[in-house]
Design a protein around this nucleic acid. Structure first.
Lengths: 200, 200
DNA sequence: GGATTTCTTGACCGGCCGGTCAAGAAATCC
DNA sequence: GGATTTCTTGACCGGCCGGTCAAGAAATCC
């Protein structure tokens, strides 16, 4: 659904998106009804269906926007750096910072991952993220900086660790994203173990 | 709801649980109706409400059972070992093995984590898992084997990495759980980086 | 300023939802 | 074998769901 929108129309659309993001994040996608959204905005139901084809399309739109915005932040963070290991670290830090400032979108992306229904849309975003991280891992292996393990598994491990730490320490405990990122990067690069003479 | 159940009653209850697990995992909790469950079993609606107070209670029951079963598997895997680092590695391997053989339950636990509604039940299980992992991390720091980072963050990082690798490589790509666990353990213990003389 | 397009209203649709309940069948108890 | 408990049936409840649509108001176009 692409409509020509006036100034007023664009504002309405934005209003619906923002309100829906808040409600979906708070109560979940299924329990939030279209009726609740339009009522919350104090408008008739027709308004919703003027801007969106369905509740589902609205949600996909929100997802797409979120994934795009996060990726933009990651690219901006690493653009001045070429070292693959530093790129991984900076990307992780950028993800933590973005997640901290978009708690609702973080929730929705998490949720979408569990719904067969949104699997296709999610995979697209997830695959892009894996491809981005995987590229740096491969580069690092090529330069001899990174150990020769399966790059895709490493990329997924990075994303999984980041997501879980964000969920718990940013959104539950409200720890600063720099502190969380410091520990995450340190663990990721050097591992749990104290280097021992027999190992190194 | 605790009822005295005959043999036949226990079988019915189990039937409902198993069928519901399959439907919830396939289509999601909200889209799966009680009507669909009883119809799938070829029984009247009253049967459902004889064994469960509500759809929600049924789901919580499933969650509780899953968390208990996973934890049992983890404890069994590490009972003969005292070294904290080995315990972490074995726990991770046991989790991968369990997850591989219970794909539906893995999905449901993932889903529940995104629902405010089930947050309380989830936190209980999650906290137990974090406490278990955190204990081994602290033990490892005490023996000087593990680097002195925040044990709780490390515990969450371990769980997050494990969950993501399970989701992608066990349940999407159907890679053997031993292979996935090998890489996960290696990354976790030694990190991404090739040890360099200037670092070690 | 008339025509056209954008935007809004809100009553209404069929359909499904979770849950109740009276009635009776089946199993178990003593 | 009568009494009691366990189990099952399925019609029914009020309520909410996503989505439609005819009518008209507001903004924009020319």
């Amino acid at each position: 659904m692409t409509r020509r929108l006036t100034q007023r129309g664009q504002e309405r659309r934005r209003q619906i998106l923002d309100f829906a993001i808040a409600r979906f994040a708070e109560n979940g996608y299924h329990p939030t009804s279209v009726a609740e959204i339009v009522q919350g905005l104090g408008v008739g139901k027709g308004v919703f269906y003027w801007y969106f084809e369905s509740k589902e399309e609205l949600f996909l739109e929100i997802l797409k926007e979120a994934q795009l915005d996060l990726r933009r932040a990651q690219r901006a963070a690493i653009e001045d750096v070429t070292d693959p290991v530093e790129r991984i670290a900076l990307g992780m830090r950028a993800t933590m910072a973005w997640s901290a400032s978009h708690p609702e979108l973080h929730r929705l992306v998490q949720f979408a991952g569990t719904q067969e229904h949104f699997a296709a849309a999610m995979r697209k975003g997830q695959e892009t993220a894996v491809r981005d991280a995987g590229r740096h891992v491969r580069d690092g292996i090529a330069t001899g900086q990174i150990r020769d393990l399966d790059p895709e598994m490493l990329a997924h491990a990075i994303l999984g660790m980041t997501a879980q730490l964000a969920r718990e320490f940013l959104h539950e405990r409200h720890v600063s994203h720099e502190v969380v990122a410091d520990t995450a990067v340190s663990l990721l690069l050097d591992g749990l173990l104290v280097p021992s003479p027999t190992r190194a």
